[in-house]
Amino acid sequence: MGIYGQDWASYQSATPDTTGLSFAFIKVSQGTTYTNPEWAAQRDHARAAGLVVGYYHYPDMANSAQTEADYFLSLVRPQQGELLCLDWEGYDATNRSVAPSAQAGYKDAWLRYVKGRMPNSPVGLYCNLDYWRNIDTTGFFQDFLWIATAGAPAGQPGITADWLFHQYDDTGDADKDYCHLDSTAQLHSWAQSFAPVAGAPAWPGEYFRLQNPLLHDGNVRLWQQQMADRGWSIGVDGWYGEQSVSICRQFQQEKGLQVDGIVGPQTWSTAWTAPVTA
């Protein structure tokens, strides 16, 4: 089924037509000096229309990712349930001089730093097929992937990665986007799921996944103990191994979450959410 949105920059008016839209991504900043003069008005317009709102930053990847992220975050003050995104592309003269390996490193550093500062906000990546296939080396997109394949049918971006948004048309008055969720309410619910659950410890900011060597720390032990307290048969030893992955998958299936065996912010917070079931 899916839902539709647009992305806006200074090329659009302060009050674009929102008819038929469920979400809008708004360009806020570029490098360490540029601010979209329309972004705040566009934000207010999107909020008033009941859209899910996202904000994005276009980089100058010769700069420090942290410095640029700090500039972006000094401007945007997202409400709970609003999205933060890196517009990862660099076809301008400044970025063309940056080596692909440095561009790839910038991407991962920016996403991790912003997530560290904004752990209760969805943080994600926008890029096109060229960057995804030829510049990316890790497949890392933090909480969501927004992929651009202009000219492809909406919802058919041509990749196997777990994308959430698809920019399928860059012609006309504004770029057009698609989300594979079934309704605006479902997208709102997904975005709100990153909020801290009352009484739950804050998500520690690390994803528990099967790796070599195995992840072993106190955060894993805390999650395992919570799962055991809920009634799951799981060892509480701090090692995120095959048993923990299996329990995680079963729990995600039961709760209607993405079943990937990875403990991220949604799976973590849901572990402290009623009803308690085994």
Rank of each mutant, 00 (worst) to 15 (best):
Y168L: 07
Q186A: 15
A185W: 07
A154R: 09
S189V: 04
W190L: 13
D182P: 00
L111N: 00
N128T: 10
A185S: 06
L111Q: 04
D177A: 02
A152N: 15
F165N: 02
S189F: 05
G151Q: 00
V197S: 02
P201A: 13
T138V: 05
H188A: 09
G90D: 09
A150G: 15
L181S: 00
C179Q: 00
V98Q: 02
V114Y: 02
T94I: 14
K115T: 07
L145T: 10
G90I: 09
L145E: 04
G155H: 06
Y131S: 03
R117Y: 05
A161P: 04
Y131F: 15
D92C: 02
P100C: 11
D136K: 07
D108N: 08
L125D: 07
Y91Q: 14
Y131M: 01
T137F: 09
P122I: 11
N128H: 12
G139N: 00
P157D: 10
G116S: 13
D136R: 11
W163G: 03
Q186L: 14
T94W: 09
R112G: 06
S193M: 08
A191C: 06
L125F: 12
H180N: 08
P157W: 12
R96H: 01
D169T: 04
P119A: 10
Y168V: 08
A191H: 00
S101P: 05
G199A: 06
I135L: 09
K176N: 06
G151L: 11
A152S: 15
A154W: 13
C127Y: 04
Q192W: 07
P153T: 11
I159C: 01
I147T: 01
D170T: 13
Y106A: 03
G124F: 06
F144E: 07
Q186R: 14
D162V: 11
D173K: 11
H166G: 05
A152G: 06
P157T: 13
A109I: 07
I159N: 03
R133D: 15
L125W: 11
P196F: 07
A109Q: 11
N128S: 10
G139M: 12
N134S: 13
I135V: 15
D169C: 06
L181E: 03
P119N: 12
D169M: 02
G139R: 05
T149G: 03
D92Y: 09
Y168W: 01
A154D: 13
D130C: 08
H188P: 06
A202F: 04
K176H: 13
D170P: 02
I135Y: 06
